[in-house]
């Protein structure tokens, strides 16, 4: 069954003239009996974790990762070192689950934290494994995260293309994870959180069933974050649902021009009175 949660959040009014509307949806899929994905929509922190380990507590691993991230919920001053610290504590927690190296559970993670600096909002993104972050702008859909997977390494080496990767027998093998794999270094990405953009965090249960064009069509469907996240998950389940499916959609509504005016205090731009509404989401 699909579980959906929607959360609207307005950061400190004077520091950034934006509202974040976020929603996460998850489904165990059509094949698996239980859901090893876990997720967090707790502003300014949004996380998807995909647990691995079969009977060896993959679902517990992903929840431990989520639990570690709840430490950052409600904060407006999260820094990259804070996230490194959270990753480190989740590593310790997941590693403690292992009863033997063979059955050691693990988890991917993709997390987005909204941070405000000098009146501008930024996304601080982190990923380990093959759970992904996508950015939808008025112009395009772009994968922001870089998969830590065997097939991605083969793509990077020019051995296969993305189409071959989708059907490659080893497409589920990841090269980095929290807990189970030695090399668990994270990729950090920092980028402006522009008004009118939409961020998608998802587990590979989504991207394994839907290609980027399909994902973009659904993201561009004009629906609210809540409807969109549920539609994405439903489409992936309908397309086969071979794995657990989780999607978080976050809309950045508002303008960063406003916040700059607040910060500098020297603009008398009449536009400032009217925050451009980039996306209707009702």
């Amino acid at each position: 069954m699909t579980q959906t949660t929607a959360v609207t959040w307005t950061p400190d009014i004077v520091s950034a003239g934006v509202t974040l509307v976020a929603s996460g949806s998850t489904h165990e899929g059509a094949v698996r009996s239980h859901n090893e994905d876990a997720w967090l929509v707790s502003p300014p922190v949004y996380v998807v974790a995909d647990g691995m380990g079969g009977h060896a507590a993959g679902d517990v691993a992903s929840r431990l990762v989520i639990e570690a991230f709840t430490e950052l919920a409600g904060r407006d001053d999260v820094t990259a070192p804070d996230i490194e610290r959270v990753l480190e504590s989740s590593r310790s927690a997941v590693a403690a689950l292992a009863t033997s190296p063979v059955t050691a559970p693990g988890s991917t993670v993709v997390a987005a934290v909204y941070v405000v600096e000098r009146g501008r909002g930024y996304w601080l993104l982190v990923n380990i494994g093959d759970s992904r972050a996508y950015l939808l702008t008025p112009e395009r859909l772009e994968q922001v995260s870089h998969d830590h997977s065997l097939v991605q390494e083969m793509i990077d080496a020019g051995e296969i293309d993305e189409r071959q990767a989708r059907v490659h027998p080893d497409r589920h093998v990841i090269t980095r994870a929290i807990g189970a794999v030695e090399d668990a270094a994270a990729d950090f990405t920092l980028m402006p959180a522009r008004g009118g953009t939409r961020l998608l965090l998802c587990s590979d249960g989504l991207t394994g069933e839907l290609d980027d064009a399909r994902i973009e069509r659904i993201l561009r469907g004009g629906a609210s974050a809540a409807v969109t996240s549920a539609r994405l998950v439903a489409a992936a389940v309908e397309a086969g649902g071979h794995d657990n499916v989780t999607a978080i959609v976050i809309d950045v509504i508002g303008s960063d021009v406003l916040s700059q005016a607040d910060t500098l205090g020297h603009r008398s731009d009449p536009e400032v009175d009217t925050v451009p509404q980039a996306r209707s989401h009702a």
Partner: peptide, 14 residues
Amino acid sequence: PRSTAVTGAALPQL
């Protein structure tokens, strides 16, 4: 501007 790095400390200022 956007940047990706392997540690948080290596992220540039934007």
